[in-house]
Each structure stands twice: as structure tokens, then as C-alpha cells.
């Protein structure tokens, strides 16, 4: 995941400035961000965005120096900033270069509404699928069993399979001539969900397994010896202590499915799905496919406007994950003094 970068970068920088200056930590971050925004805006309106890059590198080096003194901190901060710029700058430019009127027009179009509905609903089904069936698997993996490393590798395999190949795999497995000839996969919701589940399952299973593993074994012993059988121990102790991570795993799987292009493009380029506002089944495309389709049809501006809308949705999901993973009131696992 491209756990992003500009925000994290400036937060780190802020703590640093805050520790040296008279400003509080929060206001230091805010001041730093504000300065960056103003300089970027000036450079952008002057048509010399490249100049901002040098300013950003300079500020990174300064922050590096202020935080730790010495050439090593300056070098590390400058080199790190290059990566941040490579990731962050295009995103900022992408947002800055949108035509607001076109974005609004697209945001109001039925076509895009249908796309967004499919792109949130389909991944939700996929995430639900991976969590419902991935949680028991994650539990077994956390307990360990003969051959568990083999199963772990199988779970991780989709991470290295090219996604277009993943799509082909789904088609060969469940499509025409596959295991269930009567089930239609090509261009259906089932196919879409299967393709998404294939690529997102590792995220859910791994996060949930790690959560189960962090639960203190003595906690489970204590439950068992005082009368709870395996299931009751899971229901009353292991699961509640890992619930937050199960949700996080689900949201990660959801986010992964939302952004999936390759596998979906092969299995369900055009998808038949039930769309409540239309009161019936319609044909539409999953957002990344839709955007690619618009792009190849020749309109960069239109596809980027839709892309911007998808980016906003993705950022919202990302914030949700951050909140779930690092939010307050973390009671997960060994919270004993």
C-alpha cells in the first residue's frame, strides 16, 4: 500500500520543529504545511512548479538539520524527500489541474453514480466474503497446524501473481469449462467478487491472523481452564480482543478491491448488476475499468475528472483505515500493566 506520504512526512517534520522552536507541535506542523501550500500555489500559478521541488528539498534538509543536527540527518531528509516528492507531487498536481466544472458535471452524471455504486458495493461483497471465510482460516493459522506454512504461502500467493493473470485464473477455475459450469462468471457480479476476493484475501487474512497471534496465550488458557471450550474461548476472548483488527482487515480488503483493475478487467470488464435506483439490472463498469475505458476512448480530461472522484473515495477509505488502525481507545490484546 502506498501509505501516503505527504501527510506522514509533514507530521514527522512538525514534531521536529516543535521540539526546537517556541511553537507547539500542532502549530508547527500547521505552519510548515501552510508554507508549503503557499509556495506551491505561487510556483504553480507562475507556471514554474519545478521551482517548488527545490524549495521542498530545501525545507526537508532544513528540518533534518533542525531535528538532529549533522550532515547525516540532512542527507537522510533530502533523500527521503525525493521519494515523497515522486509520490506526493503527482497527486497534488493531479488535484490542482482538474477542471472543477468538469468534475462537478461528472459527479452529477448517472453514469458515474452507477460506477461508484458498483465500485463500493462490489468490493464490500468481496471484503465480506474474505472476512467471513478468512477469519476462521486466520484463526487456524494463528494456532498453527501441520502444513500451516504451506497454507500461508497459498494465502500470500495472490500478492505476487500479476493481476491480469489472477483474472485468467478465476476464469479458468470458475468460468466456462471450470469447476461449476452452471455458474456464470464472465461479466457477472459473482465473477467480479471472486476476482476481487482473489487479490484482496491476503490482506484480510494476514491482518486478522496477526491480531489473533498477538492475543496472549495465557488469556486463552485462563478462559479454557475456567470452563470455556474452544469456541467459547474464541467467541468471548480471542475474537473480542482482535475485533478491531478484523474490521481493519475487512476495510483493507475493501480498499484493495476498490482499486483492483487487472483481474476485474479480465473477468468482468462489463458487469451486469442490480442497481436499485434504476429498479433493475444494468450493465456498468468497475471504477478503475471505467476510467481506463474513458481514457482509451480518447478523453484525458474526462477520465481524470472521474479519476479525481475515485481518488476522493479512496482517500476517505484510507482515512477510515488509519482511524481504525491507530484510533484512540485501543483495547486490543495485552493491555495489562
Amino acid at each position: 500500500m502506498s501509505t501516503g506520504s505527504p501527510a506522514a512526512g509533514s507530521a514527522g517534520a512538525g514534531s521536529v520543529v516543535g521540539s526546537t522552536g517556541r511553537l507547539g507541535r500542532g502549530s508547527a506542523v500547521l505552519a510548515f504545511v501552510l508554507v508549503q501550500v503557499i509556495v506551491f500555489a505561487l510556483a504553480y500559478t507562475a507556471g514554474r512548479t519545478g521551482l517548488y521541488v527545490f524549495f521542498a528539498l530545501g525545507s526537508a534538509a532544513t528540518v533534518g538539520y533542525l531535528s538532529h543536527r549533522g550532515w547525516f540527518a540532512v542527507a537522510a531528509a533530502s533523500l527521503g524527500a525525493i521519494l515523497l516528492i515522486a509520490v506526493g507531487l503527482p497527486i497534488v498536481m493531479f488535484v490542482a489541474r482538474q477542471q472543477p466544472s468538469l468534475v462537478i458535471e461528472k459527479a452529477l452524471s448517472t453514469e458515474v453514480h452507477r460506477m461508484l455504486y458498483l465500485s463500493i458495493y462490489g468490493p464490500l461483497l468481496a471484503a465480506l466474503f474474505t472476512v467471513v471465510f478468512g477469519t476462521p482460516l486466520a484463526y487456524l493459522l494463528s494456532e498453527g497446524f501441520p502444513g500451516d506454512t504451506l497454507i500461508e504461502s497459498l494465502v500470500d500467493l495472490p500478492l505476487v501473481v500479476p493481476h491480469s493473470v489472477a483474472g485468467l485464473v478465476i476464469l479458468f477455475g470458475f468460468g466456462g469449462g471450470g469447476a461449476f459450469p452452471s455458474v456464470l462468471v464472465l461479466g457477472t457480479m459473482i465473477g467480479l467478487v471472486l476476482a476481487m476476493a482473489f487479490v484482496s484475501a491476503p490482506f484480510a487474512v494476514n491482518v486478522i491472523r496477526e491480531a489473533f497471534e498477538t492475543v496472549d496465550a495465557q488469556m486463552e488458557y485462563a478462559a479454557r481452564v475456567h470452563g470455556a471450550n474452544r469456541f467459547e474461548t474464541f467467541r468471548r476472548v480471542t475474537f473480542p480482543l482482535s475485533a478491531r483488527s478484523v474490521v481493519t482487515g475487512g476495510v483493507l480488503a475493501w480498499a484493495r478491491a476498490v482499486s483492483e483493475f487487472g483481474a476485474v478487467a479480465v473477468v468482468a470488464y462489463n458487469v451486469q448488476f442490480f442497481y436499485p435506483p434504476a429498479g433493475g439490472t444494468i450493465t456498468g463498469q468497475h471504477a478503475p475499468v471505467f476510467i481506463f475505458n474513458t481514457y482509451t476512448a480518447g478523453s484525458l480530461a474526462e477520465s481524470s475528472a472521474v479519476g479525481f472522484i475515485l481518488l476522493v473515495v479512496s482517500v476517505l477509505i484510507f482515512l477510515l483505515i488509519r482511524w481504525l488502525a491507530y484510533g484512540e481507545d485501543d483495547t486490543s490484546a495485552s493491555a495489562m500493566p
Binding site: Q218, H226, N229, M336
Partner: peptide, 16 residues
């Protein structure tokens, strides 16, 4: 769970 013991752990193992 069927052995009928009460167990007290060094680190308490209370359910947080």
C-alpha cells in the same frame, strides 16, 4: 475446560 481446576497465573491473565 472439563478438568475442574482453578488456575492463577503469574501475570494475572485477566481479560482486559
Amino acid at each position: 475446560e472439563e478438568r475442574g481446576f482453578g488456575f492463577v497465573f503469574q501475570d494475572y491473565a485477566l481479560f482486559p
